[in-house]
Nucleic acid binder design. Structure first.
Lengths: 233, 233
DNA sequence: TAGTGGTCTAGACCACGAT
DNA sequence: TCGTGGTCTAGACCACTAC
């Protein structure tokens, strides 16, 4: 039906159109790659690339021999960027500031030790509490634990000058992270730092980061009342 | 150095190893695709595929002519799945239930009308308030507005029997969504539905969904105290 | 067992942008 | 200008799985 198109991106776009126009309805089997390659005047490799993108986005379910079907619940996962706080602040055009509020070396509580895979009788860890500022006002409060075994040199780092996270990014290999968000009533320390009443509803984000095998750091970041995290477009 | 490897996935794995072992450090220029293809005994196309994956994950910055560099802040965005609530409940092994609490047709408040692109003098919209249950207990409370112009037939749908979201997924094309999360104090309606005190800190998720051009639905979902959203592994 | 998607290859041309 | 990544192609083989 269609004349020669150009590139896998345009092919993917055409396929998306067919899906949300219901030319291809949820559950439907769509033509094979070979057939679409002929129809669109492209090679099978190009069609394959386009359809793999749609499958990764959640629009299609593909299985060898069984063919490609339109997904029943085409709801692509939402993606939230969780960048370095400095970058996040500067990207919205505000001046970044950083203030260390507490630094201590002591054995972490059991929950933290478990997340950092420090064993049942954990040695001392670095505990850092700091405030990130945007145009001089509180932007985020962070309460961080760092496993010195996984981050050699951190105990000598000047975490008053550079945020612990930036030091880690520059100095420690990173292989993965787990993130969660939730709502909590502000505790005394966060409330005072963020300038709100104790008990106010605030957004909290927990992030645990690993190197190859060991847990490197666990951080709880809390944001002032009203803060929202937005998905990427 | 290395014997023939197999496939772009293994090549990507090897490249990731070099990055977090600091064989390739942040800011470094890495060898060209052609050079790596020779070293790894693969074709350039295979190396290209692997490096494109790493670039999409945030590990590499690639530019024509300038070559490929290791990113300075390699922090891949966290991805949260935002599935159909029914699927979410069933995936954690609990029995799903749904209870309609309110259904009315009236002009939406200005903020909602704006998100749904209904203009300055919006006509009536469908307002649905419902509760999702897991093993009979409140799992999520949703307050939803639907633009009937973008969802023809919704006014005749039986939203007491099937959740409005499921009806929409089955009947209305979907082209994109915007999601945000935040923390709020529970209002009277949500508090009563979720069985908590007014003012308790609860997680809220807003989602606006569009068809090709028009806004289809805006929903605010609130979760019981303590609920957390987790990133995908 | 046969049909479908997943992938690799070698070669080619193009687009971008550093120099 | 010209080196680098981005992409297309045609052909091939393989892996999975419905039949």
């Amino acid at each position: 039906m269609r004349a020669a198109r150009r590139g896998w991106a345009e092919i993917a776009e055409e396929a998306r159109r067919r899906i949300y126009r219901r030319d291809w309805s949820p559950g439907d089997l769509i033509p094979t790659e070979a057939a679409l390659a002929v129809e669109w005047g492209a090679s099978r490799g190009t069609v394959n690339r386009a359809l793999q993108v749609l499958a990764a986005e959640g629009w299609l379910d593909r299985r060898r021999r069984a063919g490609t079907r339109v997904a029943l619940h085409p709801t692509p996962p939402a993606t939230f960027a969780v960048p370095l706080t400095r970058d996040e602040v500067e990207r919205i055009g505000r001046r970044y500031g950083y203030a260390l509020r507490r630094r201590e070396v002591l054995a972490p509580p059991p929950g933290i030790a478990q997340r950092l895979e420090m064993g049942a009788a954990p040695g001392p860890a670095l505990h850092v509490v700091a405030l990130h500022l945007a145009d001089g006002r509180p932007y985020a409060h962070e309460d961080r634990w760092i496993n010195p075994a996984a981050a050699p040199g951190i105990l000598d780092a000047d975490v008053a000058a550079v945020s612990a996270n930036e030091w880690l990014l520059a100095n420690v290999p990173y292989s993965g992270a787990s993130v969660s968000v939730g709502a909590e009533a502000a505790g005394p320390e966060a409330a005072e730092a963020l300038g709100c009443a104790v008990g106010t509803a605030i957004l909290t984000m927990d992030r645990t980061t690993w190197a190859t095998a060991a847990g490197v750091t666990h951080v709880r970041t809390t944001y002032p009342p009203g803060h929202r995290m937005w998905s990427l477009p």
